[in-house]
Amino acid sequence: MLELRLVQGSLLKKVLDAIKDLVTDANFDCSESGFSLQAMDSSHVALVALLLRSDGFEHYRCDRNLSMGMNLTNMSKMLKCAGNDDIITIKADDGGDSVTFMFESPSQDKVSDFEMKLMDIDSEHLGIPETEYHAIVKMPSAEFARICRDLSTIGDTVVISVSKDGVKFSTSGDIGSANVVCRQNNSVDNKDNETVIEMNEPVSLTFALRYLNSFTKATTLSNTVTLSMSKELPVVVEYKIAEIGHIRFYLAPKIED
């Protein structure tokens, strides 16, 4: 038996909006520690890892570990039927073939339940080693989204370079080229507006912009985003989900032949 009650149901709606275009089907894993998902896009270039910790739920009951295969397009259709202020409860029976999403309006005068069929998904779970990253950049998520969107009108790939001067995003295409440099700044009044660069070693990596643009659909989940990079390793683009967890996207770099 599984019963997870999330008061801020809009978070789950936003999570689905952030990942449904990258991944079609995924297993949601439920354990004592939380509600999580790890899934790759069909080309095995990008991976999303979601964690919603059990202590972030108002009520969290998971009698035994459960993996529930869901079609994210269908799940998103159902969650779109929840109001933004609704409380969402996820319910499932052990060994059952369906999951129920219950939506309660804040004043409790409307209660809906939507039952969705589960599916069997052969997912390839990857072991992601703990890594010391050469450079970690924390910046406003809206700024990162803006840069990715702007540069994708010029080129298909972006070179992200971190040096002591700042973080540089460069692209080029048929019509020309572009560079955006963000320097470290300290905002006294608002930490969310800060760009903070921790660098042990300069690092420069090339990525396909269309994936980064897809990741920025998570911008609504957090005011800040963290980019963690090491030479010849996938970048980690992390959005914290207030008080409850995170969504991390891993993107394999483009490497010179």
Binding site: H44, V45, L47, L126, G127, A208, Y250, D257
Partner: peptide
């Protein structure tokens, strides 16, 4: 020209 790598190059199946 830079070639797109796969996640399998970096991460092993668990």
């Amino acid at each position: 020209k830079a070639k797109q790598s796969s996640l399998f190059t970096f991460f092993k199946k668990a």
